[in-house]
């Protein structure tokens, strides 16, 4: 507007230096403190990632100098190449690439199957609102939190009996089963939050259970499906224990291979290769995280949201 400087000028000339307009902005120490704290915290969170990256770009002689935080003098991707294709994960020395492909082979079907089943379950459960249904619901919730250790041994026996132990279908089955509580809750809560009238209207129009599900509910469930995909993808990719036990030697996922690379050392520990392998393993969930933004946060809260 330009009227403000004019008016305040006028006022000053009239000797009326009254408060006028917005409060003067003061950069108070408190404000500086806020940013100071946030920057320190951000450093704490950043440093490991930074160290990972620069270490992976150094050669071993440079690492031995002990300059953990120094930028690489002579950046090289040799360690990355070695980690990908040559590092030893035990007796074999084929790098982490096998683990990468194994993880893809495990994650893709597991995510799809668990979401399909979870969404149907959640839809069905959203109808069941009696006290008995709440019990099942509680049981499921308990399942989402129960330590794997408590059920792992019986599951080993079961999958062995079914001939699935140590096979790809076996690990997919395991992931689907363990993902079911959280997937079911996620979709149940979502479907329960939709207006009931929507469902009633579809019933009046003569749609049946499955028609309502496929033609009305699922198209509306796209956002929550994205949340589910993110949740399951990062969860299954990051899994260590289940892959270690159920996947079998041929299908060990990337996290297990990574741990093997780091612990299997003949002679010198190659920290640069270790860190390159670590970044490679973290890459998929990191990309998913950065690309998904708000959906990731919603996924986190999903286990906790009330129905």
């Amino acid at each position: 507007m330009g009227s403000k400087p004019q008016t305040s000028l006028l006022k000053r000339s009239m000797g009326l230096d009254n408060p006028w307009g917005p409060r003067p902005i003061k950069t108070s120490p408190a404000r500086m403190g806020v940013y100071g704290f946030l920057i320190v915290a951000a450093l704490f969170f950043c440093i490991p990632l930074y160290v990972m990256v620069i270490t992976s770009l150094k050669g071993m002689p440079e690492i031995r100098l002990g300059e953990l935080f120094a930028l690489p003098n002579d950046p090289t991707v040799a360690a990355w190449l070695k980690a990908w294709a040559e590092a030893c994960t035990g007796v074999q020395c084929n790098g982490i690439k096998e683990g990468f492909w194994n993880s893809i082979k495990i994650t893709v079907p597991s995510v799809m199957v668990s979401i399909v089943i979870g969404s149907i379950n959640g839809y069905a459960l959203s109808f069941w609102r009696s006290r008995g249904a709440n019990l099942i619901f509680g049981l499921l919730l308990f399942g989402a939190f129960v330590p794997f250790q408590v059920v792992i041994f019986p599951l080993i026996i079961f999958t062995r009996e079914m001939g699935m132990y140590g096979t790809l279908p076996g690990i997919v089955f395991i992931h689907t089963a363990f993902g079911m509580p959280i997937m079911t809750l996620l979709f149940r809560n979502y479907f329960s939050s939709l207006p009931e009238e929507l469902f009633k209207a579809a019933r009046v129009d003569g749609a049946g259970f499955w028609q309502i599900f496929f033609q009305i509910m699922m198209p509306m469930a796209i956002p929550i499906t994205i949340v589910a995909v993110i949740l399951q993808t990062t969860g299954i990719w990051n899994d260590f224990l289940l892959g270690l036990i159920f996947a079998g030697r041929e299908n060990l996922p990337m996290t297990v291979q990574l741990n093997n690379i780091v612990t299997t050392t003949f002679g010198v520990r190659e920290y640069n290769v270790n860190m390159a392998a670590t970044i490679l393993t973290a890459l998929v969930p990191l990309v998913v995280y950065l690309a998904s933004g708000k959906y990731f946060v919603r996924g986190i809260a999903a286990g906790a949201v009330k129905g």
């Binding site: 969170f45 990051n238 260590f240 990574l258 393993t281 973290a282 990191l286 950065l290």
Partner: peptide, 9 residues
């Protein structure tokens, strides 16, 4: 972001 990564990492 650390929460998105595996505990192994």
């Amino acid at each position: 972001y650390p929460y998105a990564m595996s505990l192994v990492v």
